[in-house]
Design a protein around this nucleic acid. Structure first.
Lengths: 154, 154
DNA sequence: CACAGAAGTCAACCTGGTTGACCAACTTGA
DNA sequence: TCAAGTTGGTCAACCAGGTTGACTTCTGTG
């Protein structure tokens, strides 16, 4: 795709970049013994990290049905990353919380992200990664009423 | 995800950005009467634009099996965007080429991408979009032996 | 208090992938 | 030259991760 004189469309570049980073993440996770980890796990772990999250909130944030979210939580619970607890505020509901194993996985993910970004920084000019982050954050927050959506894997 | 002191991980930002741009693309396509368009269509149309492409090459580029690629081509043919022709160089093979309707869709996609990027440019400093494009291109080319992969939706 | 709506689960279904199998055509090395 | 291995595409069966529908229990509101 060559668009006017502006080069490769940003959407393509984001797609490739995202896919490349995710591939790098999962490769390095596997090297550290974390296997069978799906892309959405990281996003769910992040959202549930502080005090847990409800199934319906996971569904909303991932943009899927509550049934799909429930299945995903089932899988993560079976893998030992999450546990379900009663929600103290509502007898219908459950909160999904991180297990120790879930915390450990999330820590590994964060470390690897830092490594990957260091790799990028080594290839670009001083401060370019931070500038990119700021610009992306700026546009995305503008598009979402001032706040990044919490969790959105493509 | 808060990574060290470096803010939101780039991978998340790319995911959100990509998803947002694709959503914008498909929303604007629908406004122009293009409905039922899947994300991968644009990538296939681009790859097939100049002289067509083989089914196995689509499979390779999309990172899917040849059967999956064949199904995708079936769908796009049925929707009127592609046609299959014999490959003059190999009796086993077929080339997938764009129909007029396929060319028109690709043109619409490119126009919308340009619009979306103008929206971004309006929110950022002078030249920031081009700097981001250059930086992304730089890193991604470095990671792929000097050439961007042709086609990779997540 | 009645009722509409919400949270989660069960069940059936669907879509876009997968693998396996197959046949015709092509390529390669002896 | 030719046999064997490989390749391109299609058919078929299967699967994972979604979907929708239905249901029960609980909550909030008028």
């Amino acid at each position: 795709m060559t668009v006017s004189s502006n080069g490769v469309p940003l959407a393509r570049l984001f797609a490739i970049a995202y896919r490349m980073m995710i591939a790098g993440l999962h490769e390095r996770l596997a090297e550290r013994g974390w296997t069978g980890v799906r892309v959405s796990y990281g996003f769910v772990l992040l959202a549930a990290r502080d005090g847990g999250i409800r199934g319906t909130d996971i569904a909303a944030l991932l943009g899927v049905s509550k049934q799909a979210a429930s299945k995903l939580v089932d899988g993560m619970r079976d893998a030992g990353y999450l546990a379900r607890e009663p929600d103290p505020d509502d007898e219908r509901a459950k909160r999904v919380v991180l297990t120790d194993r879930g915390h450990a996985l999330l820590t590994a993910v964060e470390q690897i992200y830092a490594e990957l970004e260091s790799d990028w920084a080594a290839l670009l000019d001083e401060g370019a990664v931070e500038a990119m982050r700021a610009d992306l954050t700026n546009v995305l927050e503008h598009a979402h009423d001032g706040r990044l959506p919490t969790i959105t894997p493509p």
